[in-house]
Amino acid sequence: MSIDNSSFKTNLSVLIALLILTVITVLVAQVDFGIFNAFFAMLIAGIKGALVLMYFMHLKYDEKIYSLIFGISVFFVFVLYFFSKLDIITRIIQTSVL
């Protein structure tokens, strides 16, 4: 299968972006953001994941149904995270009030 020049350029740009983001991940890990440490790490990881999904896994070019299926999966991961976190945070608040 031939790779056309534009997609090669795009993939190369994405690769460079991923490498830069990896360097940023390492640099950010040196700085203490307190409770936001995980937030920044996840933010960068999320951007990297999105780039891989859109360009390397072709979600950007494929039928929209695949993006929808992926979106639904991410939504349910969010549901699991949100309600578990809701419990943990309100537990901490409850304990500290008591």
């Binding site: 349910f76 549901v79 309600f83 809701l86 419990d87 309100t90 537990r91």
Partner: peptide
């Protein structure tokens, strides 16, 4: 997918949850 915590009312889960 939004109701699982009803199994955990007395587990130590927060009252708000």
């Amino acid at each position: 997918f939004f109701v699982w915590g009803h199994h955990m009312y007395v587990s130590g889960q927060s009252e708000w949850a």
